[in-house]
Write a protein that binds this DNA or RNA. Sequence first.
RNA 1: GCGCAGGUGGCAGAGCGGUCAAUUGCAUUAGACUGUAAAUCUAACGCCCAUGUGGCUACGGGGGUUCGAAUCCCUCCCUGCGCA
Length: 314
Amino acid sequence: MERKDTVRPLIIIAGPTASGKSELAVEVARLFNSARAQKRFGAEGAEIISADSRQVYKGMNIGTGKITKREMKGVPHHLLDIADPKRIFTVAHYQKLARKEIARIWKENKVPVVCGGTGLYIRAAVDGIVFPEVRPDRALRARLGKVSAQELFSYLKKKDPARAKTIDPKNPRRLIRALEIAEALGKVPELSLCPLDADILFLGIRKDPQELERRIRIRLHKRLRHGMIEEITRLHEEGVSWKRMDDLGLEYRYGAQFLQGKITREAFEETLAKEICRYAKRQMTWFKRDFRIIWVNTNTEAIQKVEQFIKTKS
RNA sequence: GCGCAGGUGGCAGAGCGGUCAAUUGCAUUAGACUGUAAAUCUAACGCCCAUGUGGCUACGGGGGUUCGAAUCCCUCCCUGCGCA
């Protein structure tokens, strides 16, 4: 029989973009506000931790579909607006912050609800991927950025044959990071995990591709009406370079291309919609591998799972 | 009606006598993922047996030249532009 004070509940809500995660997360969090849930689970509420690699940035609101104060319905949200879009925010940083928040929420006898579409961020926080303590080296990256993947791979093979065996030999970005680590530590440490000690309910929202595409297109038009282009213009005026916008991807990448006159308005909307769909698919390939995920089709179904979870853990 | 240009795989668009089931881009499908992850990268992509230096059907329709044609010739159909 488990004692209440050893129960460390953690709810994760994942799914592709436009599947309705944020809204569900608020609904789930609010379940823990009921007297019944508080009594049964001994929790005094829930707080949401975003796991979204773009919503961490200040000023990127419309393009990322960041939840509004009103939509939060009083549920505290964390790890939104914590970074400067001019600078790169990394998974390792996210991991530290997310774990800190989770620990704090538990300490306050509440339930953390991790919600987001960035699979790597969720895994980093929950499973505790141990990232080698080697900070990005801009000079090195710039230098290696000019080298072909083939050459990078042969460097790595010499420097760290073990890592060379597991790495994608055609992906320059990965090769450069591996070399960066090898440069500093001699070799890339083997992958290890340091998972959170928690009772996890991992929910995934599933939508059929056609329905998802429909939602994506509707949402895109809404964003455009709500001033997405103006937001991008403003970010640029505030010093976010076009190059940086390109790295930020999707709305920012194609919006920047449109604003620079590189593509027509029509091409902008069409490619962007398509790219978002492809992104949604990439998210799904990532999540599909995680067998902890309980897939649900509707919010009602999700709520049922959460209620079950509350019962069995109390 | 005359002149010119052109009709190629889901689309765009190369190829202009053999090495072409046909470059490439887009789209599509599947996948990878150790500090940029909305990023980055890979593979498949006519049909069939699915073992291969395999079989079949393909480059608007039909006919012809040739050992051999998406590529040359004739003819028909269609499209765009120019002149009527």
